[in-house]
């Protein structure tokens, strides 16, 4: 069974243009009990989805440029005017006006700390992180939200100062391009492909 010629997508004139295979069909098998009685079947499925980032695309694009973008409510009439959001919110959750983009990279380098964390050996299918995985929920001075991420080096602690690192070499253009390391980590220690 071949999985070559995996499907890829481009947008031309506002439309998706797809090439290659977006699904691979495998034969199914019967499920039987000890006595040989038929109880069911397997239903193999291998399919690629197409997903639009829409207004969040600048965030995912800029991780590979070592930039952490957030957004800010720019509507002076809004009760929560000036609130800063990371995760990047396209619209203000209160006035629903379009938020303004803000570059939080420097703020994250200077004023990010671990709000909470967890360490686990358990993962689900499709996990790409090395185990045990260490989640850190990072708070920033002056930001109203707390961003979830993963720590690539060291052991997490509440209150620990951390800095962002970015997968600038072979980026995936997903949230996995952003990771965190303890403040003071030297560049030689960073995981392959990552930079400050």
């Amino acid at each position: 069974m071949t999985t070559q010629n995996r499907g890829t997508v481009k947008v031309e004139n506002g439309r998706y243009r797809v090439t290659g295979n977006f699904h691979y069909a495998y034969p199914n098998d019967p499920i039987r009990d000890e006595s040989g009685k038929l109880l069911g079947i397997t239903n193999p499925a291998d399919m690629t989805h197409i997903h639009a980032y829409g207004g969040e695309a600048p965030f995912f694009e800029n991780l590979s440029n070592a930039k952490l973008l957030g957004t800010k409510c720019a509507n002076p009439k809004c009760e929560t005017y000036g609130s800063i959001y990371i995760p990047y919110r396209i619209h203000c959750p209160d006035c629903l006006m379009r938020n303004e983009e803000v570059d939080l990279t420097e703020l994250a380098r200077k004023g990010a700390s671990v709000h909470t964390f967890m360490i686990t050996e358990r993962t689900g299918a499709f996990n790409t992180l090395e185990k045990p995985i260490r989640f850190v929920n990072v708070e920033f001075e002056g930001v109203s939200t707390i961003l979830m991420g993963y720590l690539s080096i060291g052991e997490p602690e509440i209150g620990m100062k951390v800095v962002p690192i970015f997968q600038t070499k072979n980026p995936t253009f997903t949230i996995m391009d952003l990771s965190w390391v303890p403040a003071g980590t030297s560049v030689e220690d960073l995981p392959e492909g990552f930079a400050f």
Binding site: T120, T123, A125, F126, N127, F135, M148, G149, T174, I175
Partner: peptide
């Protein structure tokens, strides 16, 4: 986009 890729757990 923001959580699932982290460990799928």
């Amino acid at each position: 986009d923001w959580e699932t890729p982290m460990g799928h757990i």
